[in-house]
Design a protein around this nucleic acid. Structure first.
Length: 464
RNA sequence: GUCCCCAUCGUCUAGCCCGGCCUAGGACAUCGCCCUUUCAAGGCGGUAACGCGGGUUCGAAUCCCGCUGGGGACGCCA
C-alpha cells in the first residue's frame, strides 16, 4: 500500500482521507505502507509542500514504513521503461505541439466530439525536423479493459475510448501515468487505493502494466468528499488543509475518526479507537457514494475526544494555544497538576483546544475581562452585601475547598432567604467576568483563596 | 459533447449482495421536556428519508429496465 501525494499544496482533507484508508488497510493486513512523493511536475511541486504533507501525516499519526521516495530521484528509471516501450513499438514519438493539441481539443469540443488525441503521429515513419517530440503510448484500440475494483466491482471501458497518452514530455521528463505504473511495479504495490477521480485513468494504467508484462495490482477507488453545495471540496468550503484543523484546536484522533466515517461504517458505531479502526477496516464497508463534509459533526466528535482525554494530557496539548492566545508567555511556568485540575473543570464545555484555552484565561491570568452586560446586571447594590458577606466568610475559612465553600454559600443564601443563583451569579461574574462557567465551587477552589479574595474585593468596589 | 461512477432523513450512514424480521435503525444538526447556581455535559421525546416511472414477484428500500438528478474524467497536471 502507498500514499502518493503530489506536493502542489498542503495535505488537504481529501488527501488525508486517502492516506488514512491506505494506512488503515496496510495496518489491518499487516502490510507495508509507503509514502511516495509524486513531484514530476516540477513547475508546481515545492519542497515546502513536501514538508507540509509530512507534517500533516505526522500530526494525524499516519506513520509510514518506507519512504518518502521522490519521483524526481528516479527519472532514469522511467526513461529506461519508456525506451523499452519505444523499442518494442508500443510507444511512438509525437511531434504535435502543445498549442496545436489545445487548438484541436477546442475544435473537437465545439463539434461535440470526443477530446481524445487523434493519433496523427501514430504511424509516422520519419521524424519531423526541428521539433523535439514527446513520447506517446500506443493504446490498443480494440476490445475492452476491465477494472476490477474492490469497492465498485467490475468497471468496463471500451479500448477505443482510451487515449494515446503522453508518457515522456518533449523535455524528456516522465508523466504521471508512466511514473505511477513503474513505481507501483518497482515498489511491489499490491493495492492501489486512491480517489474516485482516478477511476478513468485506471484502464490506461492497466494497459501500461500489460505492455510491460507485469501483473496488475488490486484497485480500490474511494468516493469523493464534497462541500455543502455538493461540488468537490475546495477552499471556498472553508478550511481544507489538515493543519488548519490543528490551528483551530482539533485533536488528530477526532479528525481521523471523522474522516474514516466519511464513506466507511461499522454498523452503528460512531466513535472508534485507533486499534478498533485497524481491526474493523475492510473495503466491504466502504460506500460508493460521494460524501458531503460536515464540519458540525467533526466539531461534535472533537468535543467527544476532548471529554475523553485525560486532563493531564489535555493540559499539555492546550499550552501552545494559551501562548497563542497571549494568556501566558512562551516560558511562563505553570504547575502541571494545577493546570490539569483547571482543564478538568472545563473539559466538557470546550469543543476545541482554542475554546479551552480561551476559557482558561480567567484561571490563569491575573486580571479578568468583564462582560459589560454581566457586570451591570450582577455587580450592583443588590449583590453588594451578599458579596461582602461571602468575602468575610471566605477569609474566615480554615479550609478552602469545594465542600466548605458550598456550606458557606448555603448558609448565606438561607440567611437571606434567596435562591442560590442570587449569590452564585454575581460571584461567577466576579470570578470569571462572565455568566458562564463550571460549577462555582469548583471555580473558586481552582482559583485559590488569595485570588478569590482579590477578585471579590474588586467586584465589591465595582458595585458602587 | 464523449466516457465513467453514484443515488435511504438537511448531513454522515445501517439495511441492499442472499427480496418478507423495515409502520426503514443509529449519529450530527434542529425542536421540546427533565436535571440544574450559569453554561455545558447527560437523560427522555419529537420533526425528518428509500429521487421518479415501469417491470419481475404472493410480497421490493432490496432484483431488472428506463428516466431524472448529482459527481468525476477527458492536459506535454497529478
Amino acid at each position: 500500500m502507498r500514499f502518493a501525494p503530489s506536493p502542489t499544496g498542503f495535505l488537504h482533507i481529501g488527501g488525508a482521507r486517502t492516506a488514512l484508508f491506505n494506512w488503515l488497510y496496510a495496518r489491518n493486513a499487516k502490510g507495508t505502507f509507503i509514502l511516495r512523493i509524486e513531484d514530476t511536475d516540477r513547475t508546481r511541486s515545492t519542497d515546502e509542500y513536501i514538508d507540509a504533507i509530512i507534517e500533516g501525516m505526522k500530526w494525524l499519526g499516519l506513520d509510514w514504513d518506507e519512504g518518502p521516495f521522490r519521483q524526481t530521484d528516479r527519472f532514469d528509471v522511467y526513461r529506461s521503461y519508456a525506451d523499452k516501450l519505444l523499442k518494442e513499438g508500443k510507444a511512438y514519438y509525437c511531434y504535435c505541439s502543445a498549442e496545436e493539441l489545445e487548438a484541436r481539443r477546442k475544435v473537437a469540443m465545439a463539434q461535440g466530439k470526443s477530446l481524445k488525441y487523434d493519433g496523427r503521429c501514430r504511424d509516422l515513419k520519419e521524424p519531423v525536423p526541428g521539433v523535439t517530440p514527446a513520447v506517446r503510448f500506443r493504446m490498443p484500440q480494440q476490445g475492452q479493459t476491465v477494472v476490477e475494483d474492490l469497492i465498485r466491482g467490475n468497471v468496463v471501458f471500451e479500448n477505443e475510448q482510451l487515449d494515446d497518452l503522453i508518457i515522456l514530455r518533449s523535455d524528456g521528463t516522465p508523466t504521471y501515468n508512466l511514473t505511477v505504473v513503474v513505481d507501483d511495479v518497482d515498489m511491489r504495490i499490491t493495492h492501489v487505493i486512491r480517489g474516485d477521480d482516478h477511476l478513468n485513468n485506471t484502464p490506461k494504467q492497466i494497459q501500461l502494466y500489460q505492455a510491460f508484462g507485469y501483473a496488475v495490482p488490486k484497485f480500490a477507488h474511494l468516493p469523493m468528499i464534497l462541500g455543502a453545495d455538493k461540488t468537490r471540496l475546495s477552499k471556498r468550503h472553508g478550511a481544507t488543509s489538515v493543519m488548519a484543523y490543528y490551528e483551530m484546536g482539533y485533536l488528530p484522533e477526532a479528525l481521523v475518526n471523522y474522516l474514516v466515517r466519511l464513506g466507511w461504517s461499522y454498523g452503528d458505531q460512531e466513535v472508534f479507537t485507533r486499534d478498533e479502526l485497524i481491526r474493523y477496516f475492510s473495503f466491504e464497508n466502504v460506500g460508493k457514494a460521494a460524501a458531503v463534509f460536515n464540519p458540525e459533526k467533526l466539531l461534535w466528535l472533537n468535543s467527544q475526544y476532548i471529554m475523553g482525554t485525560a486532563p493531564e494530557k489535555l493540559a499539555e496539548l492546550v499550552r501552545p494555544f494559551l501562548v497563542k492566545e497571549q494568556i501566558i508567555t512562551e516560558d511562563q511556568p505553570l504547575d502541571p497538576a494545577w493546570l490539569a485540575r483547571a482543564v478538568q473543570t472545563l473539559q466538557e464545555r470546550a469543543k476545541t483546544l482554542v475554546e479551552l484555552a480561551a476559557s482558561l484565561r480567567y484561571y490563569v491570568a491575573e486580571d479578568i475581562i468583564f462582560n459589560e452586560k454581566a457586570k451591570e446586571k450582577f455587580l450592583n447594590e443588590k449583590s453588594r452585601d451578599l458579596l461582602k458577606e461571602l468575602k468575610d466568610g471566605v477569609s474566615a475559612l480554615s479550609e478552602f475547598s469545594s465542600p466548605e465553600l458550598e456550606m458557606l454559600f448555603k448558609a448565606i443564601v438561607e440567611k437571606h432567604g434567596v435562591k442560590l443563583g442570587v449569590l452564585a451569579q454575581p460571584v461567577r461574574v466576579a470570578m470569571t467576568g462572565g455568566t458562564e462557567s463550571p460549577g462555582i465551587y469548583e471555580v473558586l477552589e481552582v482559583l485559590g483563596k488569595e485570588k478569590v479574595l482579590r477578585r471579590l474585593e474588586k467586584a465589591i468596589s465595582l458595585t458602587g
